[in-house]
């Protein structure tokens, strides 16, 4: 069964009967302060077995803090953290989790297989080395030293360290940040394979596109509070929609009056149109202007999506929130 089929099955199952698979980890009324800074405020979050939950938010939203709390790397200021029904700092629960964290420097003089060998030894029932190498796509570079690897290869090694213990629950903290398109797609494929193997994954990202490509469920987090929650399509629908850019003889006002248009701006010779959906608006413009040229359609930027989502909730927050 392909990963995408599995994913849509899970999606329909969750939507269909409304009862989700059991919770494997949760944050319950969690607040976390770093000194004066409130990184998370009264957050409730549950990860269900077999899902890929994407925690989507801008830098400093509190995503990494949530992951650290779930891994027992930070203590909550208030509230409680549960992983497999217990405290995440206990070795027994760490045996069942794997984590890929943002790390600035990994020991560079150890070889890929040596890093994997060491991390595998921490677990009681690790995957065989060959399997870990295969899943992470590292067979051809297993004898290279970490310091000799490219950015994408390095991320794949960190990914291998997260999965080598064959854990049930994986935390991937911005796994594709700084990767080029190809390396990102490769890692996405590997993450999908995990999901197909029945693993549960919590992924943090600030790319809407990434959450859309991978997640069964998305939680949008901003300034330490949950701003929205839903399937990727629900989230996209609630975000700011599409952006159309074109050179047209139509007046701004004419375009502004079209149904589905949110906002129109003049940008040099072109019009910049924000719309909930691109197609109906394009149809109208094409019908009324034969000379239209230079059409570009883009998804709304994440920043705009966040604005849209957070405005819904009427959030009034101080400016100092959320350090990663």
């Amino acid at each position: 069964m392909s990963a995408s089929v599995l994913r849509s099955l899970q999606e329909s199952e969750q939507k269909g009967n409304g009862n989700m698979s059991p919770v494997v980890a949760s944050l319950n009324r969690i607040s976390k302060n770093y000194g004066e800074v409130q990184a998370l405020r009264n957050v409730n979050l549950a990860i269900h077995a077999g899902e890929l939950l994407a925690l989507l938010g801008p830098n400093g939203a509190g995503k990494t803090t949530a992951v650290k709390l779930l891994l027992g790397l930070a203590k909550p200021t208030a509230g409680n953290v549960s992983v497999f029904g217990g405290n995440p700092v206990e070795a027994e629960f760490r045996m069942r989790t794997g984590a890929m964290l943002q790390v600035a420097k990994v020991p560079e003089t150890l070889r890929v297989r040596e890093h994997i060998d060491l991390f595998s030894s921490y677990y009681l029932n690790p995957l065989p080395m060959s399997e870990t190498l295969a899943i992470a796509g590292l067979e051809s570079i297993k004898d290279r030293k970490f310091g000799e690897l490219s950015g994408g290869q390095r991320q794949r090694v960190l990914f291998a360290l997260a999965i080598c213990g064959n854990p049930d629950l994986l935390f991937l903290d911005e796994p594709t940040v700084g990767l080029d398109v190809e390396a990102r797609r490769l890692l996405w494929e590997q993450i999908r394979k995990l999901l197909a193997r029945g693993k549960t994954v919590l992924l943090t990202t600030h790319y809407l596109q990434e959450a859309d490509a991978l997640a069964t469920r998305v939680i949008v987090i901003n300034r330490g509070v949950i701003a929205a929650e839903g399937t990727p399509s629900e989230i996209k629908a609630r975000s700011a929609g599409k952006q159309i850019r074109c050179v047209t003889s139509l007046s701004i006002d004419a375009v502004r009056r079209m149904p589905g248009v949110v906002e129109v701006l003049q940008d040099r010779e072109a019009l910049q149109i924000k719309a909930t959906e691109a197609e109906p608006v394009l149809r109208q413009i094409l019908a009324s202007d034969q000379a239209i040229s230079g059409i570009e359609v883009t998804s709304a930027g994440l920043e705009e999506a966040f604005l849209a989502l957070t405005e819904d909730h009427n959030l009034t927050q101080p400016e100092t929130l959320g350090s990663n």
Binding site: K68, L71, G72, L73, A91, R94, M95, T97, G98, A99, L101, Q102, V103, A104, K105, V106, P107, F119, Y122, Y123, L158, L161, G165, F171
Partner: peptide, 18 residues
Amino acid sequence: ASERGLGWMQVKRASPMP
């Protein structure tokens, strides 16, 4: 100092390493 400051120690601590 370097493993602590540059994140590697955290990767180790998140693992089940004794």
